[in-house]
């Protein structure tokens, strides 16, 4: 490498400094967003089996979005999964159930699901635990301004289609 004549009279390497500052500012923004959106970040499913089996037809919803009792109720009746037969073999069902329950919004995922699960009732028994994330009081409140025509838009069609509006939902972000 030949020495650059421009740098000979400049002891401070300005360019790396500026680049460093830009990188720092960028990570500050990203970090700030992650912290500000603390109530809007739900760690995505990390288990490959759960991702595959729960994420073929719809987004593999974050376990922290529902309480443990809800996941238990849902996993005990996959034969009728919101009108679809989503049954799996018993061993796979048990493994998925274990993961969802362990990371549920009132268990391991409490830090993230806490606000979303506020005001949720019926979690004391399997029969009454809520099944739809989209019927949780906090969810309904957060989406009250979304007009009907938007739900019916052909790119949306169902309230379960989070990624239609939340571009980063698969990575756990629901800020936008």
């Amino acid at each position: 490498m030949s020495p650059k004549p421009l740098n000979t009279d400049r002891p401070l390497p300005l360019r790396p400094l500026v680049l460093g500052a830009v990188a720092l500012a960028f990570s500050a923004i990203v970090l700030g967003r992650a912290q500000a959106g603390g109530s809007h970040w739900f760690p995505p499913v990390a288990d490959p089996l759960v991702k595959e089996e729960c994420g073929s037809c719809h987004l593999a919803f974050a376990p922290s979005m529902l309480p443990a009792a809800s996941w238990q109720r849902m996993m005990s009746n996959l034969k009728n999964h919101f009108g679809d037969d989503a049954s799996l073999d018993p061993a796979v069902t048990a493994k998925i159930s274990e993961y969802l329950v362990a990371n549920a919004g009132d268990r391991g995922g409490q830090r993230y699901g806490d606000k979303l699960l506020r005001g949720v009732t019926g979690t004391t028994s399997l029969a009454s635990a809520p099944l739809r994330i989209t019927e949780l009081p906090k969810w309904v409140r957060e989406h009250r301004k979304v007009p009907n025509w938007e739900w019916k838009h052909q790119e949306v069609r169902t309230r379960a289609n989070c990624t239609a509006c939340h571009a980063d939902a698969a990575r756990g972000y629901y800020d936008d």
Binding site: S56, C57, H58, L59, V156, R157, T158, A160, N161, A164
Partner: peptide, 10 residues
């Protein structure tokens, strides 16, 4: 040969 889409948008 083209992609499809589930009712839930996947």
């Amino acid at each position: 040969r083209g992609a499809g889409r589930t009712p839930a948008g996947k």
